[in-house]
Design a protein around this nucleic acid. Structure first.
Length: 683
RNA sequence: GCUGCUGUAGCUCAGUGGUAGAGCACUUCCUUGGUAAGGAAGAGGUCAUGAGUUCAAGUCUCAUCAGCAGCUCCA
């Protein structure tokens, strides 16, 4: 006898074999119709699969309101998509077809590659399959039979997967709907009818078999599905909305930065308006560095290869660096000797000839500053900060907007501390990151503690030092009072780290602020200090950058504010608008006064109607407009218009200055509440 | 780096192998208007670059450069 416990606490008993669907039918035909899949003792099971014949189980029936049911639907839809493709095209080899956070994909190899022009045809075929309402039928068989079956079907990826990834499984499952049969763990909706009309093919991309770049590249067909068409429409609408916040689009529209083919890929040109944002952020950090006892330094953009041989950056990370700069005389000599590029690379690696490197990191330079003086424990911590520009040869396919560039400026600092000071110093660094994020109202981030991957050999240093450093990071993260995840394989090659990770508008994650603990570089550079015991000791290093890089941070910030910056960051804080050309003289007086007070102000004296000037200023996302007309000239007032609130009325110029200055000092972040004043009503 | 797509005016984009187009922006003139678009005229192009096919190429082919999506990578 089987006892079924339901989430509401009720229980039902069955003598004969039943499925979750049978139970649902008994409870009510409405539930039976709405049920998509079931959960038995926490494990997903097909609705029509038989429940155990005896004992007691917890049963939960999932409907389209459950997120887990949506994942199942998407997985089922992936099968339908594969089925459609196989009906339409020859020689389709299927790889994997899972659901994702927002949809699903199927990786496959075809004789003739698909293009987006094929989408309507595939979608039409999928509609047909949905209408055919084929049942998803689960088949289980021993691995030998499964292997044989996949061989017969000519599905070489499935064969390989059974032989490698699924080597430990004795029994394998397949799902069949209509003529389509696929190796699959499940689960699925009962039949294709459940998929409905809320699906859409989205894009086509390349993907490597099993995610390995040395394997064959497949075609990945991206799509999504929702339980109803309305949800699909909303999803597509959200994607469109996100595109409007894209920093690459807004950066161009508002003249913040640019890229230029002639300058080179991944090399940012900061235009005056973008430079203001970056400079204000730097000033903001610099103020906190001063408070926290940092010393500001400047170092060159290049350094000898010897420096990076010592640090370990060269030749091991050569492929992500710009190639070394070799002296002219040396190049000539080598050329005369008939030396090949390969020979040159070898000689550089071996240190037989010297060269310079565009710096990929600032740490070695800062280390040499530390080493330039005899240090006592009384000097520690030594905190060296620099907005240091570094150069990395990112793969061409990785470049994108401000998020991934080949030259970027880190708000970098290196702390040289005693073992005893380490914990407090890490805390102080984390505080700084939190101050930055709080000030800007960015609360949508996650914290990641990056630990070494025990199976990799890319790390340098002793295991016990790593253990201590990792423990210090964990402890610091715990002390922050926010959720964090510890992730193996996310450490730097010299030590573990604590990263602040945010998402951009298209859902990609970016590491911003970072704090890293390092026992290795002090050792490689043989750094020392004299302790209270008059013995020589080795300092520990902390690398930290609250923004990460100015480029990436500004990129994220543009998307965060949709380019409508708070007053203290706005490239153009104020715009003065004259009601008519009669007020130009008074306008110039007011403009000059505000400029002297330190505001970034522009004025619009054109013979246009006020309404037109206001509209332009709104679309340009100017925080405050100062309207001056003949009445203002008489009374010595300005009529303030807030980008968000609208007309605030006339006030004496001096009163406006006080108000605006206060908002700048407070770094106030004011979010748009209304619906029509975020400047993109027209786009 | 790999796969696919894209590159036309400052911006967003039309353009059938046969004389280069629109909207916005810009310039000039008219309008002097108090809180989201006043009117008229004008200027603006090596169709990314280089080769090829063709009587003829923005359009077809190839290469290069750059961008986009995804994959791989990110000290």
């Amino acid at each position: 006898m089987l006892t079924v416990m339901l989430p509401d606490g009720s229980r039902r008993e069955y003598e004969s074999s039943v499925s979750a669907y049978d139970v649902a039918t008994e409870i009510g035909p409405g539930l039976a119709k709405a049920a998509v899949v079931a959960e038995v003792d926490g494990a997903m099971i097909d609705l029509h699969a038989p429940l155990p014949s005896a004992g007691e189980v917890q049963l939960r029936l999932l409907t389209k309101r459950d997120r887990a049911a949506l994942d199942v639907l998407r997985h089922s839809c992936a099968h339908v998509m594969a089925q459609a493709v196989m009906r339409l095209y020859e020689g389709v080899q299927l790889a994997f077809g899972p659901y994702t956070e927002t949809g699903f994909y199927y990786d496959m190899a075809l004789e003739k590659p698909l293009s987006e022009e094929d989408f309507p045809k595939i979608e039409a075929e999928m509609k047909k399959i949905v209408k055919e309402n084929e049942r998803y039928e689960r088949l289980e068989m021993p691995r030998k039979e499964a292997l044989e079956l996949c061989r017969e079907m000519g599905q070489k990826f499935k064969v390989e997967h059974i032989e490698t990834g699924l080597a430990e499984f004795e029994t394998l499952s397949f799902y069949r709907q209509g003529e389509f049969l696929d190796l699959c763990r499940g689960r699925h909706v009962p039949s294709t009818r459940f998929i409905g009309k809320g699906f859409k093919l989205l894009s086509l991309a390349g993907a490597y078999w099993k995610g390995d770049a040395s394997n064959q590249q497949l075609q990945r067909l991206y799509a999504t599905v929702f339980f109803d068409k309305k949800e699909l429409k909303e999803h597509l609408h959200r994607l469109e909305e996100a595109k409007r916040r894209d920093h690459r689009v807004l950066g161009k529209k508002h003249n913040l930065f640019d890229f230029d083919e002639q300058v080179g890929a991944g090399l940012v040109l900061w235009k005056p308006k973008g430079a203001v944002v970056r400079q204000e952020l730097q000033n903001f950090i610099a103020e906190h560095l001063q408070r926290q006892g940092y010393g500001q330094v400047f170092t060159p953009h290049i350094g000898k290869l010897e420096l990076y041989r010592t640090s370990g950056h060269f030749p091991y990370y050569q492929e992500s660096q710009f190639p070394p700069l070799v002296g002219r005389d040396q190049m000539k000599k080598l050329a005369d000797e008939g030396c090949s590029c390969g020979d040159l690379a070898n000689m550089l690696s071996e240190g037989e000839i010297e060269g310079y490197l565009l710096k990929p990191m600032n740490c070695p330079h800062h280390i040499r500053i530390y080493a330039s003086e005899k240090r006592s424990y009384r000097d520690l911590p030594v905190r060296l900060a620099e907005f240091g520009t570094v150069y990395r040869w990112e793969q061409s396919g990785e470049l994108g907007g401000l998020s991934r560039v080949r030259s970027f400026t880190q708000d970098d600092a290196h702390l040289f501390v005693t073992e005893d000071q380490l914990s407090d110093e890490i805390d102080q660094c984390l505080d700084l990151v939190k101050i930055v994020l709080n000030t800007l109202g960015m609360d949508d981030y996650r914290v990641r503690v990056g630990l070494r991957d025990p199976n990799s050999d890319k790390y340098v240093g002793e295991a016990d030092q790593w253990d201590r450093a990792e423990a210090a990071c964990r402890k610091a993260a715990e002390g922050m009072g926010v959720d964090f995840t510890a992730e193996e394989g996310e450490a730097a090659f010299y030590g573990p780290k604590i990263d602040f990770v945010v998402r951009d508008v298209i859902g990609r994650e970016w590491q911003l602020g970072t704090v890293q603990v390092d026992y290795q570089l002090p050792q490689r550079f043989e750094l020392e200090y004299t302790g209270a015991d008059n013995q020589t000791h080795r300092p520990v290093m902390v690398h930290r950058a609250p923004f990460g890089s100015m480029e990436r941070f500004v990129g994220v910030l543009i998307e965060h504010f949709a380019a409508a910056f708070p007053l203290w960051l706005a490239p153009e804080q104020l715009r003065l608008l004259t009601v008519s050309e009669k007020s130009e003289t008074y306008g110039k007086e007011v403009e000059q006064r505000l400029r002297e007070e330190g505001f970034r102000i522009e004025a619009d004296y054109r013979g246009q109607k006020l309404g037109a000037k206001i509209r332009e200023a709104q679309l340009d996302l100017i925080p405050y407009m100062l309207v001056v007309g003949e009445k203002d000239a008489e009374n010595g007032t300005v009529t303030v218009r807030d980008r968000i609130e609208g007309d605030l009325g006339a006030m004496p110029l001096e009163a406006a200055i006080v108000k605006l200055k206060q908002e700048v000092t407070d770094k106030t972040v004011r979010q748009v509440g209304g619906s029509r004043n975020d400047g993109d009503q027209n786009s």
